[in-house]
Nucleic acid binder design. Structure first.
Length: 243
DNA sequence: TATAATGTTTGAAC
DNA sequence: AGTTCAAACATTAT
C-alpha cells in the first residue's frame, strides 16, 4: 500500500466524494470521529505517504504505515478504523494511523518536499542533502522531509538506475550523480504510479527483490543498510561506492 | 507455518 | 543530552 504513488492512486479513486457531505461516520479510530459528521469535504490532498481529507478548519491525516488498506463502496469483514458514509457511497479505511491537524493544512506541510507534488523543488532537496554529507544515501532517500513519498522500493530502484551504491556517503557523491538521483526519484515515482495503476509494478523492478544484476549478470547483494536498516538490493560491480 | 515485508512513532536504555 | 534500540501497531504473501 504505502509509498507515495499508491497514495496518489487513493486520492484519484475518491474524487467522486470531493465536495460531498459526510452523513455518517464510524470506526475504531481514537480520534473524535463524530467531529466529521455532517461536515463537507473541501478537498483531498496528499503529501508523500500522507492522505489528507481537508475540511474548512481542520484536516484528517491518514497514514497507511506498512499494512493499511481501504475500500471504496465496499467493506472488508473487519471493523474499519474509519468509515465515511456519503449520500451515494462510502470509504472505509483499515489498519492505518489517523490524526487530526488543526487549521490550514498549508501550515502543516511544505509541498516543495513532495516528489510528486506540482510544487516539488529539486533545488531544495539538493540543499537539504548538502546539509547531511555524512549520512548514507540509502537513509537520505528515505528522509520524508527531503524526499516525501519515497519508500524502500523507490529507494532501491533509483539507486540501481543511477548506479550508486546505497552505502555511499551523501557528501562524497559527485554533484552530477546527486542531481540524477534527485531527478530519478521523481521520474521513477511517476513510472511507479503508471505501473501500479496497471497492476504491473513488480514486473518492472530491476533491483528490488531481485537476485541477479541484469547489467552484468553477477548476483545482487541483499543487505540491511544504513541507520534505518531497511533492506537494499544492489550490485557491487555496477553501483559505485563513494566513501 | 513461521517469517518477512512498500512504515513510523514512542519511550526505555545506554 | 544525544543516540540507539526494541516495542508497538497489525495484515498478508510466500
Amino acid at each position: 500500500m504505502p509509498e507515495g504513488p499508491s497514495i496518489v492512486i487513493l486520492k484519484e479513486a475518491v474524487q467522486q466524494f470531493s465536495g460531498q457531505k459526510i452523513i455518517d461516520v464510524s470506526g475504531n479510530s481514537s480520534i473524535d470521529i463524530l467531529r466529521l459528521k455532517k461536515k463537507t469535504i473541501r478537498e483531498f490532498k496528499t503529501w508523500g505517504k500522507h492522505f489528507l481529507i481537508c475540511f474548512d478548519d481542520f484536516t484528517v491525516k491518514i497514514h497507511m504505515l506498512m499494512f493499511g488498506t481501504y475500500r471504496i463502496n465496499e467493506r472488508k469483514e473487519t471493523v474499519p478504523r474509519l468509515r465515511l458514509v456519503f449520500a451515494d457511497g462510502e470509504i472505509n479505511f483499515y489498519t492505518c494511523s489517523i490524526k487530526i491537524l488543526e487549521g490550514d493544512v498549508n501550515l502543516h506541510y511544505d509541498w516543495e518536499e513532495d516528489v510528486m507534488n506540482e510544487n516539488w523543488n529539486p533545488e531544495k532537496a539538493k540543499r537539504s542533502l548538502d546539509k547531511i554529507p555524512k549520512q548514507m544515501i540509502c537513509d537520505a532517500l528515505l528522509e520524508q522531509n527531503i524526499f516525501s513519498g519515497v519508500g524502500n522500493i523507490i529507494k532501491n530502484e533509483v539507486l540501481y538506475r543511477c548506479k550508486i551504491h546505497p552505502e555511499s556517503r551523501v557528501g562524497k557523491i559527485p554533484e552530477k550523480d546527486i542531481v540524477s538521483l534527485i531527478d530519478e526519484s521523481v521520474v521513477y515515482s511517476f513510472q511507479f504510479l503508471d505501473w501500479k495503476k496497471n497492476y504491473e509494478l513488480k514486473k518492472h523492478w530491476l533491483a528490488h527483490t531481485k537476485k541477479t544484476c541484469l547489467r552484468c549478470d553477477l548476483p545482487l547483494v541483499k543487505k540491511y543498510t544504513g541507520t534505518k536498516k531497511r533492506r537494499s538490493f544492489f550490485c557491487t560491480n555496477c553501483q559505485k561506492l563513494h566513501q
